[in-house]
Amino acid sequence: MIRKSNGPAITENDMTPMIDVTFQLITFFMFVLNFSEAEQDERIQLPSSQLAKPAEGVVEAPITMQLMANGGVLYAGEIVPVEGIGGSLQRERDIIIAADKDPKRATVIVRADGRANAGDVQRVIQICQELGFQQFALRALYKPD
């Protein structure tokens, strides 16, 4: 007995649940999207503190100094010894002055690894002070207990 074929069946998939989930995913990613160009480097493990305050407003003329555990300063993508950072800072100072700003009001953000020598951090701050910088922000991970 030969069964008669009914012809090809057209299956209509319900796309609604998939679109719902996709839109929810997009909404999630939009909320967590961060366009800030925070200078962060995974080679530096910041110490944590429950009292470290997130920066209020825009920091004026920020200069970020990232000190690694081995003593080098990660600056503009290059590792520079602590004593060799003066030239780069001098250029930053010249740029700030050329932009009609005061180096005293510029903020030097110190992102130092928790295992870095405290003396190296102090030396970087001292070099900055000698070039006229006065405002420093010691950066730490904010971890409420």
């Binding site: 961060n34 005293k104 006229g132 420093f136």
Partner: peptide, 14 residues
């Protein structure tokens, strides 16, 4: 994912 960071503001003139 960016971990929240905070600052200790220190003013230290030479």
């Amino acid at each position: 994912i960016i971990a929240p960071e905070g600052d200790f503001d220190v003013r230290m003139p030479l």
